[in-house]
């Protein structure tokens, strides 16, 4: 179970086709797999290895290097509270403490209803809007304990389903390269001098 389904295999092949070397598609395919299943399974690792022409160990090695890939199921909503300097200076510790109390789990834990996983996170590139957090990587700026509670209530009641998709959905707009418009991959194995470069500029 948990290999990529048929539609996703088609998508995976399209993504692989954009790179000069198939293995470059490893991270995008891991995201695709996480979108399908919510987390990364051993079967998914083996399947991606087949698709990109690497060993399972190589794909697993890549997978475990990156924080976004979860090897165990997590909640529908991943709540990441930033604890890096700008947020820490403006109350990140208090926010985390409040989140632990409200959700009834420690950082790293998942609520018993499977809705929320709480995590301590590093800088989220929103430092002027501290303290920050993300829900499934969607930014929430200038958090207070009051708007944290409201956010959790809204998520519980399903009021934010349009804005915040379930864990694993990275982007809802995908790049499409129409076949008739593509310049094509530039393979290192078949070197071609760019057509627009005069000899003097090479």
């Amino acid at each position: 179970m948990s290999r990529l389904n048929e539609a996703n295999v088609m998508l995976a092949k399209e993504i692989i086709g954009r790179y000069p070397k198939a293995r470059s598609a490893t991270i995008p395919l891991l995201h695709l797999s996480q979108q399908q299943n919510g987390y990364i399974t051993d079967d998914a690792i083996a399947h991606i290895a087949e698709l990109v022409g690497a060993t399972s160990a190589e794909v697993l090695g890549t997978c475990t290097f990156y924080e976004m890939f979860k090897m165990v199921p997590v909640g529908k909503y991943l709540v990441n509270i930033c604890g890096t300097m700008s947020c820490q200076l403006l109350g990140a510790d208090e926010l985390m403490h409040h989140a632990e109390q409200t959700l009834g789990v420690k950082a790293g834990g998942t609520t018993s209803d499977g809705l929320f996983t709480l995590e301590h996170a590093e800088c989220q590139a929103a430092c002027t809007e501290a303290p920050n957090m993300q829900v499934n990587y969607r930014h929430c700026h200038r958090m207070t304990t009051t708007n944290f509670d409201k956010l959790i209530d809204d998520l519980r009641a399903g009021r934010l389903e349009g804005e915040i998709p379930v864990h694993g959905t990275l982007a809802r707009v995908r790049q499409q390269i129409p076949a008739d418009k593509a310049a094509g991959v530039a393979s290192p194995d078949a070197p071609v001098v760019p057509a627009w470069m005069p000899e003097a500029a090479q």
Partner: peptide, 17 residues
């Protein structure tokens, strides 16, 4: 309409500073 041809491929990371 020129000889200039290039693809831009969107790639995404997965969390590693």
């Amino acid at each position: 309409g020129t000889k200039f041809s290039v693809d831009i491929v969107l790639h995404w990371g997965a969390g590693a500073y």
